[in-house]
Design a protein around this nucleic acid. Structure first.
Lengths: 114, 114
DNA sequence: CTTGATGTGCAACCGAACGTTGCAGAAGGT
DNA sequence: ACCTTCTGCAACGTTCGGTTGCACATCAAG
């Protein structure tokens, strides 16, 4: 039952700047590279490159509007990403619980033989 | 109410190879750079570098054992990482739900005026 | 329509990250 | 003592995140 995780999707949200960009698009609605960069500590060009990455993995889509290119979050794809976060979190939690219960079992055995 | 996320911790588990290394250490218990690299598509040296990163953020700790250096997961720190995954997942889920309900409200208003 | 402001796109460049190969050295087994 | 095996260090190449600089498109006035 190995974890089914799309590495590209995960890596896309692994970058702090991209994560903040998604936050911004969710909180303030669709925006352009320029409007996003105003709320971020990086230049417009850096934001543009990140938007290309996000678009490539389908987390974001663009719609040309006049002279500007407006980006919005693809909700279905973001939901998939969230599902993967939860899935990995759940797996690791399960493993951690198992290790903890093993440790407790050993403790018990040790108490018995004391 | 911006998300409180440790970027270093998140970035550490953002790399696919490091995530698999953690998986391996959890599933098969403590191991060395050499044993880990046997289960991974990268060389021992690459694994060593990743172990340095994981050690730096406290996700893993090493105990010298003879000529080899055995690494094991720091469970408390991994639990923190999982908590951050859940936290971001929950935030995004909330925002997605809010957007969805907004969309439905608009639909309703449109139906009324039809 | 021309001018100026604003938004986008492309290219060159830099440092850090991820990966490789090659080699030196330390610790085991026989 | 020897050979195997594991670790550590250094050099190198490529990709990634970020910057600056400049050319080009579009809108709004004058």
């Amino acid at each position: 039952m190995s974890t089914v995780v799309d590495d590209h999707l995960w890596s896309a949200i692994g970058d702090p700047t991209r994560r903040r960009m998604l936050d911004l698009l969710l909180a303030e609605g669709p925006g352009t590279a320029t409007t996003l960069s105003a709320h971020l500590p990086v230049t417009r060009q850096a934001v543009t490159k990140h938007l290309v990455v996000l678009d490539r993995v389908g987390l974001v889509r663009s719609t040309p509007a006049g002279r500007e290119k407006r980006y919005h979050v693809d909700e279905a794809q973001l939901a998939r990403a969230v599902a993967q976060l939860n899935s990995v979190g759940a797996l690791w939690n399960a493993r951690l619980r198992r290790i903890k219960s093993l440790a407790e079992a050993i403790q018990q055995a040790r108490n018995k033989s004391r």
